[in-house]
């Protein structure tokens, strides 16, 4: 049992419990983390669950796939460790992970 921390653009932190097998998007939504819209419900088709994985943790989450990159390409706040939270499936190895939220979801 571990936790993941989402940090909003203005600095507010939200630590939520890991539920293995669920996507980070779903976990954020279930816990009422603001700043994630998830318009397409988890299909990597809208880009509104954009998170920037804290540098050291990108090895745990892996990098964005092709489909995901296409959506991320359209986001102005895109960073090297940008991911769509719906495409990251939580594992116990992510205990302590930090994900930053962009100022806006497109």
């Amino acid at each position: 049992m571990g936790s993941i921390t989402f940090i909003e653009h203005h600095g507010a932190e939200h630590a939520v419990e890991i539920e293995t097998g669920k996507s980070l998007m779903q976990i954020a939504m279930d816990n009422g983390v603001p700043g994630i819209d998830a318009d397409c419900g988890g299909e990597a088709a809208c880009g509104t669950c954009h998170v920037i994985v804290d540098g050291n943790w990108i090895s745990a989450t892996g990098k964005a796939g092709d489909e995901e990159l296409q959506m991320l390409d359209m986001t102005p706040d895109r960073a090297p460790t940008s991911r769509l939270a719906c495409q990251i499936i939580a594992t116990d190895a992510m205990d302590g992970l930090v994900a930053h939220l962009p100022e806006f979801q497109m």
């Binding site: 819209d37 318009d39 419900g41 299909e43 088709a45 809208c46 296409q70 359209m74 806006f104 497109m106």
Partner: peptide, 20 residues
């Protein structure tokens, strides 16, 4: 609930640019 999950803006690379 989940009112945002509609199709009006389309999905994918052509998703509406002016949605916001």
């Amino acid at each position: 609930k989940n009112a945002r999950n509609h199709l009006s803006f389309g999905f994918g690379v052509h998703r509406c640019m002016g949605n916001r």
